[in-house]
Amino acid sequence: QIFVKTLTGKTITLEVEPSDTIENVKAKIQDKEGIPPDQQRLIFAGKQLEDGRTLSDYNIQKESTLHLVL
């Protein structure tokens, strides 16, 4: 699982696999929060994550925290 922290300070927990794409993660966030993926920007280690890449591409491991910017 990974954590996604929103600007409001809320933390969302997501069940993911390293092979999941960023697009996939955004879809999971939409399921939980109702935020359309095209409004979501995910930041990890100061980098904006691209939809077509996977979590493992960015070396995002379990218990990692991503930041969600709208």
Rank of each mutant, 00 (worst) to 15 (best):
D57L: 03
N24W: 11
I12V: 06
Q30V: 04
F44R: 02
I35V: 08
D20R: 02
D51P: 07
Q48G: 06
I29W: 00
Q40W: 06
R53L: 12
T65P: 03
L14F: 05
E63F: 14
L14C: 04
E23M: 14
L68I: 05
F3N: 05
D38H: 15
I35R: 02
Q39N: 09
L49R: 00
I12R: 02
D20M: 10
E17K: 08
I29N: 00
F3Q: 05
R41I: 14
Q48Y: 13
Q1M: 14
V69S: 08
I2H: 01
D57M: 06
K26D: 00
S56Q: 13
L7G: 11
F3D: 03
P18S: 09
R41N: 10
L42A: 00
Q40R: 02
V16F: 12
S64C: 08
I35H: 08
F44T: 02
L55M: 06
V16L: 07
V25L: 13
K32E: 07
A27P: 00
Q61I: 12
E33M: 13
Y58F: 04
K10H: 12
Y58I: 03
K32C: 11
P36G: 06
L7P: 14
Q61N: 11
Q30G: 07
P37T: 14
T6V: 10
K10Y: 13
V69E: 10
V25Q: 00
D38P: 07
I29Y: 02
F44V: 03
I35P: 04
Q1Y: 15
I2T: 02
G34P: 02
Q48A: 12
T54N: 05
R53F: 14
L70N: 08
E33N: 08
T8I: 08
D20K: 02
V4P: 00
D31F: 12
K26F: 03
A27F: 15
D31K: 12
T13D: 04
G52A: 10
D20N: 07
T21R: 08
P36Q: 06
Y58S: 03
K47W: 07
D51F: 04
S56M: 13
K62A: 15
E33Q: 06
Q1G: 05
D57Y: 15
H67Q: 10
D57E: 12
S64H: 08
I35D: 03
L7Y: 15
D38T: 10
P36S: 08
I43E: 08
D20Q: 04
G9I: 02
L14E: 00
H67M: 13
S64N: 08
K32T: 08
S56W: 09
T11G: 03
E33H: 08
L14P: 00
L66M: 05
I35E: 02
Q48I: 13
K32S: 09
